[in-house]
Amino acid sequence: MLAAIVNQILQGVLLGGLYAMFAMGLSLSVGILRFVNIAHGDLIVAASFLLLTLTSQLGLPPFLAVLLVIPVAFGGGYLLQRLLFQRALGKSVLPIILVTFGLSIIIQNGLLGAYGADTRKVAGGAFETATLALGDGVNIGVLPLTIFLTAVAMIGLLDRLLYATRIGARIRAVSDDVATADLVGLPSARIYAIAMGVVGVTIAISAGFMSIWTNFDPASGPSRLITAFEAVVLGGLGSLWGTLAGGIVLGVAQSLGAQVDAAWQVLAGHLVFLTVFLIRPQGLFPRS
């Protein structure tokens, strides 16, 4: 009994790692570009389908496929920001919300047209099912553990990128005050685009893990977006390490909810989110 609960909580914590991966990209766009990209989840799903094609059609191993998709995703994020989102940024947030919303619908239906409505998954091989026994009936999956550790490493790297590199300082400068950045000669549009390229990299990596660990279909994007959004808000808007905490809270809530039934899995996550949000709207780790 105890072992079962410990297993569920552990599973939830590790699931939180995947959610943190979804969330860290969204957190960057919220913190730096000051908007919520409604197509964020759809972009993750689109990258997953791209991985599906690379692995099943071309027979590439998943790891290699992700390595190939990373630069594509960086370029895609860069161009998306430069050619589309940048034109919708301004005093009002209405245009950018509506543009990303329209993009979300286009991606969902584009994927539906290209791949059909079937639920898919990328085959991960033995890696997928391997477990480590921790004794007393407590087991831990190698894949979920890898995902969790990767998420921690990614947050660490993003943190270093922002706080210990020149491009990071530029990104934070633009995030602080874009008007001043423009006035002193920083190319803010390009810096935004690079930040979105970095978001693209997080999307590619999280798509790699998501497509092996969970099922997905063309309509999966919104639920990924909502999960990411909840983790970002729970963690404290704009806080990178907070996304990990938010992801873990959601993961554990869902994992325990799933004990009741499948519908309770998602509902429990939402209810915990709403409760915590009403008590602590600034999130668990608000950025000062």
């Binding site: 409604i38 950018i96 959004f229 808000v233 939402h270």
Partner: peptide, 23 residues
């Protein structure tokens, strides 16, 4: 719930509420 979110986040916040109510 949703009026505690700034307008940029209110959009997705309202979506979460709608999802919850549907479930």
């Amino acid at each position: 719930v949703i009026f505690r979110l700034r307008e940029a986040y209110l959009a997705v916040g309202s979506w979460v509420v709608a999802e919850t109510l549907m479930l």
